[in-house]
């Protein structure tokens, strides 16, 4: 019928508009490298070994400057750490423990129920220690950047010397994927920045992949459960739609 091409045109325009709108803000002159993520796609799950290696990097590198305020040590069960491991990790840091009998603030070893310890007591202290720049909280960083995991990975591997004609602000590093290309964070990861205990070779690319897997898990710890539930619900709805449509056909059969 004549209506179909028009309907298709409208649908096409609608989808085109939607896609254009969603990619509108991603327009930068540097295209993000495509990485194969364990957690992409409707059946994706987190590669827990990779996330654990990523946590090691977070512990040894990121957490020197970046907070992760939304996470508790107990959450680490989600990347497959055991209760004992979590207790040991929490106990390895000192956290504020209220006040003693004289009203003086005290520190105590962390417990699984504690938030990840922040490296700085407040934003001002963080800025003062980082040349005026504030290292962003990493809890939902993966959701808070256009490009998500791909962008964070690109940022880790995007450091280089600035082009000859580029004038750098004092204390700034060149990173071709950072908006404006001048970033206050020095290159955090190099080949061999950490020693992996599982025999994985700590290349820059491997480290970047691992830490981003960890950050993606931290931002959406519910993702695996969500996708698994989604598959079941969609299958159920497809069945229900089929049944409903069959009932509808039967009921309407005497009308036409």
């Amino acid at each position: 019928m004549r209506r179909i091409p028009l309907a298709r045109l409208i649908l096409g325009a609608a989808l085109g508009g939607l896609l254009a709108a969603s990619s509108a803000r991603a327009a930068d002159d540097t295209k993000l490298p495509k990485v194969e993520w364990s957690f992409s796609g409707p059946f994706g799950t987190y590669d827990l070994a990779s996330a654990q290696r990523g946590f090691l990097i977070y512990q040894q590198v990121c957490s020197n400057c970046h907070s992760m305020n939304q996470l508790y040590y107990r959450n680490l069960e989600g990347i497959g750490l055991s209760e004992e491991q979590i207790k040991a990790i929490a106990a390895s840091v000192q956290v504020p423990g209220g006040v003693d009998d004289n009203g003086q603030p005290i520190q105590r070893p962390g417990r699984p129920a504690d938030h990840f310890r922040a490296p700085f007591p407040n934003d001002q202290a963080a800025r003062a220690a980082n040349g005026g720049a504030l290292p962003p909280d990493q809890s939902v960083l993966e959701l808070a950047r256009e490009g998500g995991a791909d962008y964070l990975y690109a940022l880790m591997v995007g450091y280089s010397d600035p082009p000859a004609d580029m004038k750098m602000q004092p204390g700034m590093m060149y990173n071709r994927f950072f908006p404006g290309h001048q970033i206050a964070m020095p290159q955090p990861l190099q080949d061999g920045s950490v020693q992996y205990t599982d025999g994985t070779k700590p290349t820059l690319e491997q480290e970047a992949k691992d830490v981003v897997t960890f950050l993606a898990w931290a931002a959406e710890p519910e993702m695996v459960e969500r996708k698994q539930m989604g598959v079941k619900i969609i299958l159920f709805l497809l069945l229900l739609t089929g049944l409903t449509y069959a009932v509808k056909r039967k009921l309407w059969s005497d009308v036409h």
Binding site: P42, R226, K227, M229, G230, V231, I233, I234, L237, L238, L240, T241, T244, Y245, V247, K248
Partner: peptide, 18 residues
């Protein structure tokens, strides 16, 4: 309407879960 609601829920669920 029930047929429509089912299709609506499929699209909705695809967004929410994936």
């Amino acid at each position: 309407d029930s047929v429509g609601i089912c299709v609506f829920l499929i699209v909705y669920a695809a967004l929410v879960f994936f």
